[in-house]
Design a protein around this nucleic acid. Structure first.
Lengths: 138, 138
DNA sequence: ACTATATCCTACTGCTTTACTAGGAATAAG
DNA sequence: CTTATTCCTAGTAAAGCAGTAGGATATAGT
């Protein structure tokens, strides 16, 4: 029960980008060196971040990536959902309230998943890139 | 980011055991049928639960399993830690405060893992088998 | 035009984990 | 002695994880 390295690397790289004031692009090579991450692995991660429109790219020499939006407006939840898939999604918890598929009646365990999901959502939504970069969370 | 079926099955089976008043053992066959789970898979899960001394077993005909302690005294956290391994354990968060290995100085991202871990621990520790079985959590 | 530096994209690979299945030994009740 | 059950090991197909490899495309500077 932990996040994958994709999430960790991606989040760390995004915090680095949040530390840059202007919109000049930063290359993956620089980020990878600074954070000691495989550059090619980071490329794949950033393809997903770009498709999710969390970063924008500049191709060619002196190119790289920059944040697509204000760092204070990008939540950790958004990033992790892109890199990790839905956080604690269970069919159990679907909106139509169909309940568990395995038997009739309510599942006595689904309340555990729901509480986890609610709490995770709150925490991750309450943290954004600017806050992380400034280290204001404690 | 979700718990494995091991955790789900194990937790559901434990709730079933919590619904039995006396200490008469319930066989895995009965639990497996009721919960629509593979009996042999459930066996493996219960080997771990027994080794962790959360359940006790009675071998032979009319044997089975029963809870080793009062259901109000067995938390969801204990069960999930047995079946899933440590919840959100990161080297980052070790007590010695060594910090992240990947670079000097504090990791700006570890606060995310820590907050997750703290919240998870609180929630899972606050729910026990009796409460789940009675459906008191909402 | 040419070169160096980037992103972009696909494919592959070794490893681990997951969710089981198979088969048998040991134990106990009737 | 049969039946029901736990106990234990091994195997296995599929998926996921954490990368690596190699090339196509785009752009800045010379």
């Amino acid at each position: 029960m932990k996040f994958s390295t994709r999430s960790e690397y991606g989040l760390r790289a995004m915090v680095v980008l949040a530390g840059i004031q202007d919109k000049s692009p930063l290359s993956l090579r620089q980020i990878a060196e600074q954070e000691r991450i495989s550059e090619q692995y980071l490329e794949q991660i950033f393809m997903d971040l770009r498709k999710a429109e969390l970063v924008q790219s500049v191709r060619g020499a002196y190119g790289g990536y920059y944040l697509a939006r204000d760092p204070a407006d990008i939540t950790v939840k958004e990033i992790l959902e892109v890199l990790e898939g839905p956080i604690f999604h269970y069919e159990c918890l679907s909106a139509d309230g169909q309940g568990c598929s395995f038997k009739e009646g309510p599942c006595l365990v689904q309340v555990v998943w729901r509480k986890m999901q609610e709490s995770m959502t709150d925490i991750l939504q309450g943290m954004n890139l600017q806050g992380l970069q400034e280290g204001i969370y404690e």
